[in-house]
């Protein structure tokens, strides 16, 4: 099962490599990874997506919690949550294709953020499946370059991940 694990960790050199190292060392997968400091500069927020059965996920969260620099951790997929990912994509946009691409971007509520006579650069935000769907609909032939930020997430409602 796909899980979104969100971590508050000490914003210290070496902390990230310990987390990434843990995954390779123990044979767990990381599908996506994003990290940046929070409003409190001593803390970073890291979100990663991984997959595995119940027991594997339990091991992953326990092992992560055991790292000295991990202050708090939540498996967002255990409750209601919002997930977002940013897609930047360069698409071939010539001839009839140009209008078609524009229409698809509108349908998905993306934005064209850069233009040349032969291509569009598009920005799109949403959950990962929406981004997948967009890439599918423009068709492989149009895609020149894809940049995805990896998933970020936050719990719904009153729940707050803070110290």
């Amino acid at each position: 099962m796909r899980r979104i694990i969100s971590i508050l960790m000490e914003n210290e050199p070496g902390a990230l490599s310990r987390i990434v190292g843990l995954f390779s060392q123990r044979g767990y997968n990381i599908d996506t990874l994003t990290v940046a400091p929070t409003d409190d500069e001593t803390l970073s927020r890291l979100t990663l997506t991984t997959r595995g059965d119940e027991r594997k996920i339990e091991q992953i969260t326990k092992q992560l919690n055991k790292l000295i620099e991990v202050a708090k951790l939540v498996d967002l997929s255990e409750g209601a949550h919002i997930e977002r990912e940013l897609l930047l994509i360069k698409l071939k946009a010539t001839g009839a294709q140009r209008a078609e691409i524009k229409r698809t971007v509108d349908i998905f509520r993306g934005q064209i953020i850069d233009v040349t006579p032969s291509l569009y650069t598009v920005q799109l935000v949403g959950d990962s499946s929406k981004l997948d769907a967009f890439v599918d609909s423009v068709g492989e032939g149009a895609v020149l370059e894809v940049v995805r930020s990896g998933v970020s997430g936050i719990g719904r409602g009153d729940k707050v991940l803070a110290l």
Binding site: P13, G14, S17, R18, G21, Q25, I68
Partner: peptide, 14 residues
């Protein structure tokens, strides 16, 4: 050494 030892220490400091 921080990198080399990372998987075999409980923690490390620089």
């Amino acid at each position: 050494m921080l990198g080399v030892s990372r998987p075999i220490v409980k923690h490390s400091f620089a």
